[in-house]
Design a protein around this nucleic acid. Structure first.
Lengths: 163, 163
DNA sequence: CAGCGGATGTTATAATATTACAAACACTGC
DNA sequence: GCAGTGTTTGTAATATTATAACATCCGCTG
C-alpha cells in the first residue's frame, strides 16, 4: 500500500481520490461486493477533501448531480463503505471520512485539527498495543477501538503563533 | 482519590453514588461553582448505574420527579457537569456516564461492553503517553483525546463461553 | 432593595438517523 | 429468454439527539 499525502500539506489531491477509488474497486472485487454508482459517488464525495463530511452534506451534493435522494440512500451507502473499511465515522463530529488504510488491519487513530478541520488518520500500532494491553489487564476483550484526538495540526500551529 | 469498584462485579453501588456526589460537592466548592439541585439530580441519575444514559432518558427520569423539564434543562446540566469533569459524553453512543476520575487530570479511556452495556473508565497513562508520542511524531499538538473501546467485559466473556 | 449575572423555564426548531414497505435491478438456473 | 431469488434503491414517514432564542427567576453584591 503506497504512502499517503499529509492532509495539511499541499499535495495533488486528485491522486488521493483516484487512489481511494482504485482501492475500493479492488476491495470490492476481492470480496465480491458491488461498488454501485451511488456507493462510488459517495466515496468520491467523501474524498473531496481531508475534512469529514456530514451525511446531509453528502445528501446535498448528491442532489446537485440531478438525483434527489432521501437520507436512507446516503446512510445505506455509508454503511456499506464502513463495513468494507473504506470510510470511518467520526463519532464526535457525526461525520464521515475516507479511510487512509483501507484493506489493512488497523486501529484508526484520528488527529482532528479544530482550526482547519482536516483529519489525519494514523495506524499507530504502539497506541493500539497499549490499548490492548490496558484492556487485557482488566480482562476485557477488545473488538473495536475508536481514537478521536483533537488539537492543532502543524500548519495551524504555525499560523496561530506566527502572525 | 479512593479506589473504584469494577462495574461488572457485584458491589455496593450506593457507595459509588455517594462518592461521586461527595466529590462533586468538593469540586464545586473549590471552584466556586454552583451544584444546583437540578445539576446534582442529573449527576445522581447518571450514577444510577455504570451504563451510559441518554439525555432523553435523563429527561424522562427527571419528569418522574414531578417536574416536567424540557431538553435544554438536561443539556445545560450535562454541559456544566462535563465542563467540571464530573461526566463524560460517550460520542459513539450519544450518551453520558459519570466520570470515575473527577478532579484528576486524565485522558479517559472507556471500555464499553457491548453485551451488558457497562462501561469501565481507565486512566491508562501508558495509552495516553503513546497517543501523545504518536501525535507529536506528526507535529500535532493534542488538546483532547477520546478513547472508546468496545468489546466484552470479563463477566460477559464467561457467560458467553461458559453456558 | 436596586442592579447584575448566572441559572432555569418555555417554545420552537435544527440536525442526525432509522423504520417500513414498494419498486427496480442483477444474477442464477433452466 | 425468462422465472425465481436476493440485493439494491426509492419513497414517505418518523424517531432521536441537540440547539436557538427569549423570557423569567434567583442569589449575590453594594
Amino acid at each position: 500500500m503506497s504512502v499517503r499525502a499529509l492532509p495539511y500539506r499541499p499535495h495533488n489531491h486528485d491522486a488521493c481520490v483516484s487512489q481511494a477509488l482504485g482501492e475500493a474497486r479492488l476491495i470490492c472485487q476481492q470480496r465480491n461486493a458491488r461498488l454501485t454508482p451511488t456507493r462510488e459517488r459517495v466515496l468520491e464525495l467523501i474524498w473531496q477533501s481531508h475534512k469529514p463530511l456530514g451525511a446531509y452534506e453528502i445528501l446535498a451534493e448528491l442532489g446537485e448531480d440531478g438525483h434527489n435522494p432521501a437520507p436512507p440512500t446516503v446512510y445505506r451507502a455509508l454503511n456499506f463503505l464502513q463495513q468494507h473499511g473504506m470510510v470511518h465515522r467520526i463519532a464526535s463530529l457525526n461525520a464521515f471520512i475516507g479511510c487512509a488504510h483501507a484493506g489493512e488491519q488497523h486501529t484508526g487513530m484520528f488527529l482532528i485539527c479544530h482550526a482547519c478541520g482536516n483529519i489525519l488518520e494514523l495506524a499507530a500500532a504502539p497506541v493500539s498495543d497499549a490499548i490492548h494491553a490496558a484492556a487485557e489487564a482488566e480482562g476485557f476483550r477488545v473488538s473495536d477501538a475508536a481514537l478521536e484526538v483533537t488539537g492543532l495540526c502543524p500548519r495551524c500551529q504555525m499560523e496561530s503563533s506566527g502572525d
